[in-house]
Design a protein around this nucleic acid. Structure first.
Lengths: 249, 249
DNA sequence: CCCGCACCTTGATCTGTATCAAGTCTTAGC
DNA sequence: GCTAAGACTTGATACAGATCAAGGTGCGGG
């Protein structure tokens, strides 16, 4: 279908031994590479190798729309974008995923969207067959997945409101606040928010063009609501006013 | 917050005895008003009054955004619209629900959107507490809900693509094909598709204005792709070309 | 330290859709 | 059938954001 970049291939996480403790998978809590002790203790034995870990570099494709959906992923580090394309290449990014988010929930036979790493990304991967077994034994985990899916649905509807009815300025303000909220909840300190994706990605997420996104950033800066810092950092100088803009005209 | 219409109140379905068999609830399969025999037979006794039936008239509010979410609903007849509002009244309809669809899946403490009947609508209603019990006993049903939620997520992403990247003509073509698909799957014969919602609702669903929707219908008519019939019926004269338009430029 | 390239910003202009403003059609109630 | 009111269509005009076109800027590699 499309031209855009993106290599494939799984690059198995070399049991890279940095000092920092590896981030835990939301689903199974595993930190090590091979041993997965599922969350609920109800009679479940620790399961080896139900989950595998993989690392993707920026721009690398995780999967493409239409491919048989073999895995459910949990993002344990980094940022992922998921998107859909029209035949002529127009792209809509339907979400950015951060640490703790699930990827591939949609449970159709094939993926209904493509996924690509924005930054270096670590994923915890579950084969669908094995996952089903696991869920069978752990209704509690299934609960959790249902709740998560419901939550994502609510977010999708919020985004529809943005795409259908908000102005460029409202969209950008909403986006910055979203990043800030997510950074906080992921544990990163924030105030200067890290914006890991480029203008094109932001534009394709907000249903705008890069130029409009850029102009809108400039406008917000001139109004003193944000400050653009080096290293893709943005300071939300007047969070209150941004918030007012995001939800109203 | 907003001005718009909408009475409240549950009008309990008077055990209205028309000749036709009442439509079955997707979740529990119940057709009668009070007795609900859940789908899976695994040791489950028939449960009285887990599900109740209610009828809503056109324009009647089913629930409002922000209200405590007490029920999960299954639409057994009619059409429902769900929507979100901005403070100044701009509205985005995030979905139309038809026979068989679920309403209120999002499982937050309060509803994250409002729901209103488009046509006379029959709902099968489950109190959340009772539903949880039911699900606890029937993992199979929970499976099903998870699959449904996943499916809705996929649809939401498709709609984001529409709202973010499609032209007015592409949106209207997509919409007509959606209605046609749903009518077929709900069992209604179609070819002339019934369009039960008015131009304002269509506009608020497609992120357009009534005028643009109207002009686009006219254009499609002039190009011979559709025919506008009485009684809100629309004939899709050239489904192939409509389909081409819907997915591409 | 400098270079090159990708990314970002800014400017000029264009255009699809919104907005404003009349009509015209449909339909339900009488 | 007639009529009124809402729903729909059509036209004229405006404008937010797209498109086209240059520059700037920052950063990684030599």
């Amino acid at each position: 279908m499309k031209a855009r970049t993106g290599q494939r291939e799984f690059s198995v996480a070399s049991g890279d031994n940095d000092a920092a403790i590896p981030p835990a998978c939301t689903l199974c809590g595993v930190r090590s590479l091979t041993v997965c002790a599922p969350l609920d203790n109800a009679g479940l034995t620790a399961v080896d190798e139900i989950a595998t870990r993989h690392t993707f570099e920026p721009g690398q494709t995780i999967f493409d729309e239409g491919e048989p959906s073999q895995h459910l992923f949990n993002v344990t580090d980094g940022t992922v974008k998921i998107y859909k394309l029209l035949a002529d290449g127009r792209r809509q990014i339907t979400g950015f995923l951060f640490s703790g988010d699930f990827l591939g929930l949609a449970s159709e036979a094939t993926y209904t969207y493509s996924a690509e790493a924005v930054t270096t990304t670590k994923l915890c991967c579950f084969r669908h067959g094995q996952l089903d077994e696991l869920l069978q034994r752990s209704p509690q985990m299934e609960r959790r997945l249902l709740a998560i899916a419901g939550h994502e649905l609510a977010e999708a509807q919020e985004q529809m409101l943005l795409l259908g009815r908000k102005t460029a300025k409202e969209r950008v303000a909403s986006f910055l606040l979203l990043l800030s909220r997510r950074a906080k909840q992921t544990g990163r300190s924030e105030d200067p928010v890290h914006v890991p994706m480029n203008r094109t990605d932001i534009a394709d997420y907000l249903g705008l063009t890069t130029e409009t996104v850029s102009r809108t950033f400039t406008k917000l800066k001139l109004e003193g609501l944000i400050r653009l810092l080096p290293k893709s950092m943005v300071a939300l100088a007047d969070r209150q006013q941004l918030s007012d803009i995001a939800e109203t005209s």
